[in-house]
């Protein structure tokens, strides 16, 4: 089967961060309180890591459907913050396929090319 995965591209706005805070219950002020966040080393709000990671989940679900939901695995590092206004591209490159399992190197990078998340994703594609 084809194992190419189509990237997902999305702007991370403060409105999206606020909506995610409401949906997840994570209202940490570093995400939702600009005045608080400006006084931190980040100098402003940053997106929840799990919000940005969701782009990888969306990308893999879009390619593998229910197989992703019942057999997917993710292991990632949050390498850098994503800020409101960043446009993030989630992408995947096939690393290996063996035993009916496809493993990808995955990442999320901003418009400047900074990698904010990287890691591995695997899914059972046969059997």
């Amino acid at each position: 089967m084809s194992v190419e995965v189509r990237p997902v591209v999305r702007e991370i706005t403060q409105e999206r961060i606020d909506a995610y805070a409401d949906a997840s219950g994570d209202h940490n002020p570093i995400h939702v309180d600009p005045a608080f966040a400006r006084a931190t080393p980040f100098g402003g709000p940053i997106a929840h890591g799990m919000l940005v990671l969701a782009l990888i989940g969306e990308m893999m679900r879009g390619r593998f459907g229910d197989a992703w939901s019942r057999s997917g695995k993710l292991k990632v590092r949050f390498k850098a913050p994503t800020r409101p206004g960043d446009t993030v591209t989630a992408s995947a490159a096939l690393a290996k396929e063996a035993g009916g399992v496809a493993e990808y190197a995955v990442q999320c990078a901003t418009q400047s090319g900074e990698v904010v998340i990287d890691g591995r994703a695997s899914v059972t594609v046969a059997g």
């Binding site: 890591g49 993710l74 949050f78």
Partner: peptide
Amino acid sequence: HTGQEVEHART
């Protein structure tokens, strides 16, 4: 939050 692993065992 510096790292995350997630494993889906069933839908």
